[in-house]
Structure formats: C-alpha cells, structure tokens
Amino acid sequence: MKIAVLGTGGGARCHIARLAELGHQVVVGTRDPKTTLARTEPDMMQNQPYGRWLADHPGIPLATFREAAAGADLVINGIDGHNAVKALTAIAEQLKDKILVDYSAPYTYNPDIEHPWPTPWGVNPIPDPCDSDSLGEQIQRALPDTKVVKAFVTQEQATVVAPKAIGGGDHTVFVADKDADAKQAVTGLLTYYGWSDILDLGDIVTARGMEMYTHMHGAIGFALGFGTHFGIKVVR
C-alpha cells in the first residue's frame, strides 16, 4: 500500500519508520521540503532535525503535502492540531475519496488561563475545541469528500506502531468514524502494527472523548515519570 504521512515530527517519524519496515511504500509530506531539510536545530519537542533523522532512514521520499497526498492510497495526518484544518483544506482535492487517519490533538500552547497546569516546560496546553466539538469533526466538515477516521490519539505514537513493547500488547486502542469500510481499513493497519484489542467507538463525534483524554494521558505520564510509555486497557 502507498501511504502518505503528513508531518515530520516525532510521532510522524514513528509511523514513517514502521510502515517502511512493514514493506509499505511511504511518502512524507511537509509544507516546504527545502526548509524542512535545511533545519539544523531540534524542534520544540527536542527531536533532531528531520534531515539528520532521514539520513538514517534512506530511500523515503519527502514532498509537499499536496504531492504526498496525491498519490497515496491512505493518508495519516501528523500535522500539529493548531494548523491541521488549514493545511488539510488546502489539499482537499488530493484527499478526495481517500481515508485520512487523524491523530492530531487540538492543543493551544502557552494559554493565558486563570488556573494553569504547570509542567517542566511551562503551562500545559489546553484542548480547543472540546466538549461541544472536536478537531476530528472540524477536519471532517472541512473535507466532506474524505473519510476521516480518528485514531491513534490516545497513545504515544511510538506505542501505536509497536504495541507489544508494553504489556505484550494487551491494551486498547480506539477508532471512530461513520464509515465502516474506512474504520476496517484503519483496523487492518493497526493489526499490522500488532494490535489485537481495537475498540470501535462509533461515529466521528466520539473523537471528542479521545481528544479530551489527552489530559488524562498526560497526568498518568507525569505520575509514572515523564517519558514512560504505557498502555490503557478497557476491561469488559
């Protein structure tokens, strides 16, 4: 399968490397390939410059968002939540009739709020939208001809692509969309990654729950020690 991964951050890199390892044809999308490759400083999450990372993963092409999406069978959205709707709307034609897996979190960074949640890197970001809307729904409304599946967002992406690294893989991942065939395709990808417990939450509206869970995920991470990967299990 030809899969486009949009974004070059740490999460996207997990998917890029794992998909290539599994034998898929991977193309990576970024706003401006020349600018991305010219960076020499780590990003905000202290990931090494993409060009340096790419040197250790040769043969994976880097293109614009538009070029990457145009030839793909399935697209994974790793664009940061603040810019996702705008960037994806700009390539709506290339995403038409395709499955878009969205794992972006709708974070607003450095929020000016009355009761901040302090973290080692400053005020914890806040989800916006939440409660009455979600980023997944916003993307679906912006792309009515695209099948948007919300998934992956309740785990670190390193865990999404290698679930058996934690508890032998005995934990739960979620998918949401109104299109059963699209969810089945994403479920197939998760199965290739190694997941066995994949819970269908229903319509894309349930993306609200997945996105709001990110705060709980962060709280658990702080309790376990920052950088500790973990899984959650729905016990029936």
Rank of each mutant, 00 (worst) to 15 (best):
N110H: 11
P120C: 09
T108K: 09
W121N: 10
I139S: 11
T187D: 02
L189C: 00
Y107W: 14
A105V: 12
D177E: 06
S134L: 12
T172G: 04
Y107N: 08
A151P: 14
K164W: 05
Q94Y: 03
T154C: 15
K98V: 10
D179V: 06
D80L: 11
T119N: 10
D170C: 11
E93L: 05
E114I: 03
T108Y: 02
Q184D: 06
D80T: 09
F152S: 06
V161S: 05
P129H: 04
D97Y: 11
N124L: 14
A87Q: 14
Y109M: 11
T191K: 10
I79W: 03
V123E: 08
A105T: 14
I79F: 02
S104T: 10
A87G: 06
D102E: 12
V149F: 06
I126R: 08
V101L: 08
V173Q: 03
H115F: 13
A162V: 01
A142S: 15
D102P: 03
H115L: 13
F174A: 02
Q155K: 13
H82N: 10
Q140A: 15
D128A: 08
S134R: 07
I99A: 01
D73K: 00
D131P: 00
V148K: 04
D80R: 08
A105C: 09
A105E: 11
A84M: 01
D102M: 02
D73S: 04
V175C: 08
V123I: 13
A142P: 05
P127Q: 07
I76V: 00
A151R: 08
K183C: 02
P125H: 07
Q184K: 07
R141V: 13
S104N: 05
T146H: 09
W121Y: 12
L88F: 08
Q94C: 03
D112V: 12
D181P: 00
N110T: 03
P111D: 02
K183F: 07
F174L: 10
A92W: 03
A182N: 02
E93T: 13
T146I: 10
I113R: 00
A176V: 06
D112G: 01
P127S: 04
P106F: 10
D181C: 00
L95S: 01
V160G: 04
K98A: 06
Q140K: 14
G168H: 09
Q184C: 00
N77L: 00
V85I: 07
A105Q: 10
N110C: 05
K150Q: 14
T172F: 01
A84F: 02
A180Q: 07
D170V: 08
I139C: 13
